[in-house]
């Protein structure tokens, strides 16, 4: 990362996160009750959120590298690199079992605090602890 652009990078991340957080609050994904309604298949709103978000992002990921030589403040476009191996799938099942217990996933835990939903501090603490347990005892460097 060229140091000259680091402030621009930080402000870009702040602006992008702000749009993301606004969308999470608008779509009520910050309300665990709405997530739990979906998981009981009483309200399909979450699928619309995922479709709207992934659809918009798919267009950007497909088109921007052709429309722009490089990102505005960085030398190259990164690629999402998920790996097809057992931990990816087992981890997803563990994630799902935690998600159904709390109705909270990592983004909404942070954004929810911005809607005054203070009990989500416990979710943030739990998410940090879970990520720490993984990094400290399970992950291989």
């Amino acid at each position: 990362m060229p140091p000259v652009s680091s402030r621009a990078i930080l402000l870009s991340a702040l602006a992008a996160g702000t749009l993301f957080g606004f969308g999470l609050a608008l779509s009520t994904m910050v309300q665990p009750e709405v997530i739990l309604q979906f998981l009981l298949l009483n309200n399909m709103g979450l699928l619309l959120v995922l479709a709207g978000a992934a659809g918009t992002t798919a267009i950007a990921y497909a088109l921007l590298p052709h429309l722009m030589q490089r990102p505005v403040f960085a030398p190259d476009f990164k690629k999402h690199a998920a790996i097809l191996k057992a931990p990816t799938l087992i981890g997803a099942a563990i994630f799902g079992s935690g998600w159904v217990l709390s109705g909270v996933c990592p983004g909404p835990a942070i954004a929810g605090l911005g809607t005054g939903n203070w009990p989500l501090l416990l979710s943030v603490a739990g998410l940090l602890l879970g990520a720490w347990i993984h990094g400290r005892f399970v992950a291989k460097p």
Partner: peptide, 25 residues
């Protein structure tokens, strides 16, 4: 908006989801 989900579920669910998300990448 203040959730009515019990605090222990918010915390315990967070631990599992945090662990699983990092394991899954």
């Amino acid at each position: 908006f203040i959730t009515r989900v019990p605090l222990w579920r918010l915390f315990a669910g967070g631990i599992l989801a945090g662990f699983g998300a990092r394991m899954s990448g």
